[in-house]
């Protein structure tokens, strides 16, 4: 493994520019049994206003980049090694099969259900990173984008990879098939529904009766 720190990566699918950061209110972070939230942060001693802020940045947002500044130097030092391929321990030419196998092997090691009880927190953070790497590299479109950025040395930015596919092309094939199915079902039910009252219709009738 190339990363020696435990990082809380916070990623978002709807946020166009994926961010990574961890915030934990200082007050409640002491007695919490939850392994994810009780991360101990190696950098940045508790800042004022009761918030521990660490590791995280966004690219391309002009404002609100408090997490960026808090963490830049730290991220850069680690990021040089921690590309997703290194994280999964596979070559950059790795096949989908290798990616899947690496993901499952690392999950067996770092998933909180199976990690050693005294290292659950650290391993959970690693699992979240492995999960992110897997999600991006197992998607050919996002992987291509990531590879392109990595060639330019931009891959630390982690832009867009998280939500790249959501409304875009890779769903379209499935979507049309799915929609065909639905319209077929509708057509059939209209055709056959004439005689018997449907379950849904009866529900509605019952509800009307009982509320009147």
């Amino acid at each position: 493994m190339c990363c020696s720190h435990s990082y809380g990566f916070l990623t978002s699918k709807t946020e166009p520019l994926a961010a990574l950061f961890t915030t934990v209110p200082a007050l409640s972070s002491q007695n919490r049994p939850d392994p994810v939230a009780k991360v101990s942060f190696p950098v940045n001693p508790t800042p004022p206003q009761g918030l521990k802020t660490r590791v995280g940045y966004r690219v391309g947002s002009g404002n609100g980049s408090v997490f960026t500044r808090a963490a830049v130097q730290d991220v850069v030092s680690v990021a040089e090694e921690s590309c997703f391929y290194d994280l999964l321990g596979i070559p950059k030419t790795g096949t989908q099969l290798e990616i899947k196998q690496a993901y499952k092997q690392l999950a067996r090691k770092y998933h909180p259900d199976v990690s050693p009880p005294d290292r659950v927190e650290e391993y959970t953070q690693r699992f979240l990173r492995v999960q992110e790497a897997y999600e991006i590299l197992s998607d050919p479109n996002r992987r291509a984008l990531y590879d392109r950025d990595m060639a330019k040395g931009l891959h630390f930015a982690r832009r867009r990879y998280q939500n790249y596919d959501e409304d875009m092309e890779d769903k379209s094939q499935w979507k049309s098939r799915w929609q065909n199915q639905v319209s077929e079902l509708k057509r059939r039910s209209n055709y056959k529904d004439s005689g018997n009252m449907s379950w849904g219709a009866r529900m509605r009738r019952q509800q009307n009766e009982s509320s009147s």
Binding site: P25, P47, V66
Partner: peptide, 18 residues
């Protein structure tokens, strides 16, 4: 978790909620 960050601010505006 929820909290407020003002543009240009170094720190969140007040404690986060959990």
């Amino acid at each position: 978790f929820a909290g407020i960050v003002m543009p240009g601010a170094q720190q969140p505006a007040g404690p986060f909620m959990e």
